[in-house]
């Protein structure tokens, strides 16, 4: 009796943490879905309306932005990671790049928007410098508040994030694998195709997912760049649900939030399956 009581008592220790999560994560999550599925007077169900017309465009815009910035971030971030491993003999390079990457990967929000406004805005320093060498960004239609402008800003944290994910994975490639592959007759290309890339695949896939989700949830930077008006989904949600104002379309806001959760969930599960499959040799 005493034993069983004690073993049950043990679990009480986890209660504060579990209750905390339930109240501040699970409950709000459930609330979003409940409110999203609540039928209101409108003819269309909020969950349907949230992905129709202008709102659908909003989602597509957000997803495209995330995917494009993640893809470019993946590519350039990987190049940087390979570069610092290739240039290993320059000692300071590695700690410098990795150190700054961890700073930049955490950057975001308002200050980052300010930095890019002062660099690539209409009156930006970089814009001006580029014009001096006959690269007229503004004349070509580039605006820091447009799609490609926001992609550029997002790259500021996407590239370093990918670098940070990939450097340890590349470090994990043992020199002897390369040497054995060579001794067995593999060319440099064959080594990358048959050995290095398959071993790096889980890190690359996981990184890509992290980058997409990272950009998908980002909000502050785009908000500050465009002074509040933007087509990004989070900005739309804010329009319906900020503060305690009642816009009459609160359900639509919740529905969009619910779609965000669902999409992120699909992404995570999808990628998780891919990662699992690509690293079945690890389990």
């Amino acid at each position: 009796m005493a034993g069983s009581f004690k073993s049950r008592a043990r679990h009480f220790i986890y209660l504060p943490y579990l209750i905390f999560l339930s109240v501040f994560l699970v409950w709000p999550g459930i609330y979003v879905f409940r409110a999203a599925f609540e039928k209101n007077s409108a003819e269309r169900h909020p969950m349907v309306e949230a992905v129709t017309g202008q709102y659908r465009a909003s989602f597509i815009y957000s997803l495209e932005l995330s995917a494009v910035s993640a893809a470019i971030g993946l590519f350039i971030g990987s190049l940087v990671a390979i570069a610092i491993v290739r240039l290993e003999n320059v000692r300071v390079l590695r700690s410098l790049v990795v150190g700054y990457s961890s700073v930049a990967a955490n950057m975001g929000g308002i200050p980052l928007a300010f930095a890019f406004l002062s660099a690539f805005g209409m009156q930006g320093l970089a814009t001006r410098l580029l014009r001096e060498i006959n690269i007229d960004l503004i004349g070509w239609g580039f605006r820091i508040t447009d799609f490609w402008g926001i992609v550029l800003v997002y790259l500021y944290f996407q590239i370093p994030l990918m670098t940070l994910i990939l450097v340890p994975a590349i470090d994990g490639l043992r020199r002897t694998w390369h040497e054995v592959a060579q001794s067995l007759g593999a060319t440099a290309n064959q080594y990358w195709r048959f050995v290095a890339l398959p071993i790096l695949t889980p890190a690359l896939l996981g990184g890509f997912l992290l980058l997409i989700a990272n950009a998908f949830a980002a909000y502050a930077t785009a908000f500050a760049l465009s002074s509040g008006g933007s087509r990004l989904v989070p900005v739309q949600i804010r329009f319906f649900l900020q503060g305690e104002t009642i816009t009459g379309k609160t359900n639509l806001g919740y529905a969009m939030a619910a779609w965000m959760v669902l999409l992120t969930l699909v992404l995570v599960i999808g990628f998780q399956t891919l990662v699992r499959r690509s690293e079945r040799w690890r389990q």
């Binding site: 694998w177 040497e179 592959a181 050995v195 071993i199």
Partner: peptide
Amino acid sequence: LPANKRGLGIVFQNYSLFPHLT
């Protein structure tokens, strides 16, 4: 000859099997 044309078999101290291959 480059390393991949020498036709020599090599065994290292440790971890030289490709971990992702059976």
